[in-house]
Amino acid sequence: MPITKREVEKIAELAHLELTEEEKEQFTVQLAAIIAYVEKLNELDTTDVPPMAHAGRDERADYAQRDDVVGEGLGSELALANAPDPARGYFRVPKVIEEG
């Protein structure tokens, strides 16, 4: 499947990445090669194979679940220990104008 430069730009935008023109060209070629490689899988007939979301599927109903018990967390001080700009017990970030 060919991939366009416009698609690379969109992916970069969604990932909040700023790419140079040179990088855009380069990634267009590289992403196309990766997708072409994965497309090899399409050579297999998967008509009767249900999609698999995870290798760890298990028929036991409560597989890999935990009980509703409160445990020890980090607490406010530790949680903020590596924050670049903590204030009043919060993570302070540049003003968020609106979502999106």
């Binding site: 445990g71 967390g73 017990g89 919060y90």
Partner: peptide, 18 residues
């Protein structure tokens, strides 16, 4: 998905973990 308390109104960031 973790064992932090869901208590409403605690000090900010008190009930947090990795």
């Amino acid at each position: 998905f973790c064992s932090c308390s869901t208590q409403f109104g605690d000090a900010p960031n008190q009930n947090t973990c990795p």
